[in-house]
């Protein structure tokens, strides 16, 4: 009987995590651009079990995105160059935000702009209406647009200035999404922290390219595009490790997560939560199985709260 009670208690690993003031029921969130506006596959997946959903990037005006071909599979990964195709903030407010009232999970709105003012204007528009969005993820790391995007993410001063401006206009969660296409990702993270970000997420896609040797042209229209999937997981984990040693705000780990073990690697490296991206294309419900796998790990190693193991590997060298 005692043993039975003990086992019952062990299986109750506390999966909840806190970022800023926001509580997440578990650390598994879907990544921007890989789960639409969060409502597309509700007939297929019970999204209320997710820790959260990050929307695709929303811009001030609607964007058609880049011409085809936009994606191609690569070894253990894929390249994409969608070009921030989205309906724009006004339609997002009128058509998508109302759908979130019954979604049952934390919605984080990802926003992208070409100037500081554009980012400000988007957030101001959303702040002026009633919504249950818990926060904003600031995309300063998209490699697939001509202006803006990654320009901010590769520059400490611009990152700081942008984050500071946005901090002034919202009390909601502010997460800055970092690019791996920089010399020192930790210094960009420090700039975001200094300017008042609640968390950083890392990494966005790695710039890549693939060529059709028969047609003698790039397999993706824009030539350069963003590599994602398991191929970039070690880059993501190394980035989280470096950032963890440089800042004190939470990190959301992203890059090539396919199962519970991958989530745990990120958490041990210093991530408080993770985002699942490319894997959603293969199975939009894949995050649900990861939650179960982590619970089993918690039982096996007698972990009472997932927060207890954040950065265990990286703090050894802190």
């Amino acid at each position: 009987m005692d043993l039975f009670i003990q086992q019952e208690m062990l299986s109750l690993i506390d999966m909840s995590i806190k970022i800023g003031k926001v509580l997440f029921k578990n650390p598994i969130i879907t990544a921007s651009g890989t789960f639409g506006y969060g409502t597309e596959v509700s007939s297929l997946v019970n999204v209320s079990k997710f820790g959260g959903i990050v929307t695709k990037s929303i811009t001030l005006n609607p964007r058609e995105g880049n011409p085809p071909p936009r994606i191609v599979e690569t070894p253990s990964g894929m390249l994409n160059s969608i070009g921030l195709a989205n309906i724009g903030v006004d339609q997002y407010i009128s058509k998508k935000i109302p759908l979130y009232s019954t979604i049952g999970t934390n919605i984080i709105m990802n926003i992208a702009g070409t100037t500081v003012n554009e980012y400000i204007e988007i957030i101001k528009k959303v702040e002026s209406v009633s919504s249950n969005i818990v926060g904003y993820e600031i995309n300063i790391s998209c490699p697939n647009v001509k202006r803006g995007g990654m320009e901010f993410g590769i520059d400490c001063d611009l990152t700081e200035k942008l984050t500071e401006s946005l901090r002034k206009i919202t009390e909601r969660l502010l997460i800055v999404k970092l690019s791996p296409n920089v010399t020192n990702i930790a210094s960009i993270a420090q700039s975001a922290e200094k300017a008042g970000a609640d968390a950083v997420s890392a990494i966005n896609t790695v710039v890549g390219m693939s060529i059709d040797i028969h047609k003698q042209k790039s397999k993706v229209y824009t030539k350069l595009s963003g590599l994602s999937g398991p191929a970039i997981r070690p880059i993501g984990i190394a980035s989280v490790h470096k950032i963890f040693q440089a800042i004190d705000i939470p990190i959301i780990g992203i890059g090539g997560i396919t199962c519970g073990n991958d989530v745990l690697e990120y958490i041990l490296a210093g991530a408080s939560a993770v985002q699942v991206g490319t894997s959603n294309y293969r199975d939009p419900g894949i995050a649900l199985s990861m939650i179960e796998e982590i619970k089993l790990y918690g039982e096996k190693y007698i972990i009472s709260s997932i927060s207890d193991i954040v950065g265990v590997v990286s703090s050894n060298t802190k």
Binding site: V41, I71, N80, I82, N280, P284
Partner: peptide, 9 residues
């Protein structure tokens, strides 16, 4: 990519 409208590929 996905077949269900989420990747926009």
């Amino acid at each position: 990519g996905c077949g269900v409208g989420i990747c926009q590929g």
